[in-house]
């Protein structure tokens, strides 16, 4: 379709599938801000990853820029090649949460990896952020 157009005469490299700063994500919960951003065609961008490597993996917390606001989110699926038995998805998925770990939406419409059940439980500690609420709003695990 596009191959006949002469407009693409510049060289392009394939996109990096790693989640780094300024990577676009797809909001998969039904939070108002997330839905609007996706409808407008302005998906959120990572502006910080809360780990030491600077590359986001499944279960990592990220800070995203969405509709001119800063929101926190948890990565629940990556395009990147995964180790055996870990699912690889066709999009980079994020679920928005607030500072206490409560999801902004009340339903996740896509499957999320099973290993998040353990990972998020391990990250949760008393009087800190409670990530396990995210698991309660998931509809399906793979």
């Amino acid at each position: 379709m596009f191959s006949n157009l002469a407009s693409r005469l510049f060289h392009t490299t394939s996109a990096s599938s790693q989640l780094i700063k300024l990577t676009r994500l797809r909001v998969v919960d039904n939070s108002e801000i997330g839905k609007q951003a996706m409808l407008e065609g302005k998906p959120p961008r990572i502006i910080h990853i809360y780990n030491k490597s600077g590359v986001g993996y499944i279960g990592n917390k990220v800070l995203v820029a969405i509709k001119g606001e800063k929101k926190k989110g948890v990565i629940v699926g990556c395009k990147k090649h995964q180790i055996p038995r870990a699912p690889k998805f066709d999009s980079n998925n994020v679920v928005l949460i607030d500072d206490s770990g409560t999801p902004l939406g009340n339903r996740i419409h896509v499957p999320i990896p099973l290993m998040l059940r353990t990972m998020l439980k391990e990250k949760t500690y008393k009087k800190g952020t409670d990530y396990t609420k995210l698991l309660a709003i998931a509809t399906r695990f793979v």
Partner: peptide, 12 residues
């Protein structure tokens, strides 16, 4: 494709 999202799993 589960819930309109492509999933791939590799197994040994």
């Amino acid at each position: 494709i589960i819930d309109n999202l492509g999933c791939e799993i590799e197994y040994y």
